[in-house]
């Protein structure tokens, strides 16, 4: 559905505006967003900058007549990944005071700037005169010459040439879900535990846990309790599954 809409918008873009203008606008959007990510001191603003940059990238995809990826870009990146970022930022809570970006090492920033500029200029110089592989035999077949257009071609390549990577993503999702569950399961929030046993002053001291066998037993019981009330952990797990399912859901659309 979104792919369908995107095709139309792409057609509009392609027919009414010259490519160069679209490219310039998209590039401007991307760079503005990227600058926003880097210089904004508030993480929320950085996340918004990221959204802007990602929309610009989607625009570039449209310009390159890649409607499906443009749609997926917006759905997955802007719709899921950035929302996840914002969710975590809100969950952790941004401090009211002005965030001061500290420089941990003296002279690190000029050094980083110099290194990155050097690398970027190097790649540009190397790539400027470079010729891409004209006439390289296309292993997966030309995109346009196949029936069904881009989306069908992509779907076909995913189920033929890239079948193994497609199946490997299953393992990727397994480990991502597993990791998210493990990370959030753990011991849980100490504040909840404090509320339970009423010892508000008892700070979760990391050192005391490790000394005697008695305290480690305490911890085991604590872990067992946590397994039962796993609410907040499941919440994040739920987010993770919704995120990771997005691409596979779209790929099912491709199949149809």
């Amino acid at each position: 559905m979104t792919g369908f809409l995107a095709i139309h918008s792409s057609a509009i873009v392609a027919t009414t505006l010259p490519d160069a203008v679209v490219f310039a606008v998209a590039a401007l959007i991307i760079l503005a967003g990227a600058v926003g990510v880097i210089v904004e001191r508030n993480p929320v603003h950085s996340a918004l900058g990221l959204v802007i940059a990602l929309f610009g990238v989607a625009l570039i995809f449209l310009l390159l007549k890649d409607d499906f990826l443009a749609a997926v870009q917006i759905i997955v990146y802007a719709g899921a990944i950035v929302v996840l970022f914002l969710f975590v930022i809100m969950f952790l809570g941004v401090d009211k005071r002005e965030v001061i970006v500290r420089e941990s090492l003296r002279g690190q920033r000029p050094l980083a700037l110099a290194l990155v500029l050097l690398a970027a200029v190097g790649i540009l110089l190397l790539g400027a005169g470079a010729h891409y592989a004209l006439g390289a035999s296309s292993a997966t077949g030309a995109a346009t010459s196949q029936p069904g257009g881009e989306v069908a071609a992509l779907g076909r390549s995913v189920f033929t040439t890239y079948l193994l990577p497609f199946e490997a993503t299953a393992a990727l999702f397994i480990i991502a879900i597993l990791g998210a569950v493990v990370l959030t399961k753990g011991r849980g929030a100490p504040s909840e535990k404090r509320g339970e046993d009423g010892s508000a002053g008892d700070e979760p001291d990391d050192v005391s846990m490790s000394d005697g066998p008695g305290s480690s037993e305490d911890l085991e019981i604590g872990a067992g309790e946590q397994e039962g009330e796993n609410g907040s952990g499941g919440e994040v797990g739920g987010v993770s599954t919704s995120v990771v399912r997005a691409p596979s859901a779209t790929s099912q659309e491709v199949e149809e």
Partner: peptide, 20 residues
């Protein structure tokens, strides 16, 4: 395998992209 065969069959006059 495709990269290897491409590079063995073609001599890149401007190989900056590949080097990068």
């Amino acid at each position: 395998a495709g990269i290897a065969s491409y590079l063995s069959k073609n001599i890149l006059l401007h190989d900056g992209l590949l080097l990068a």
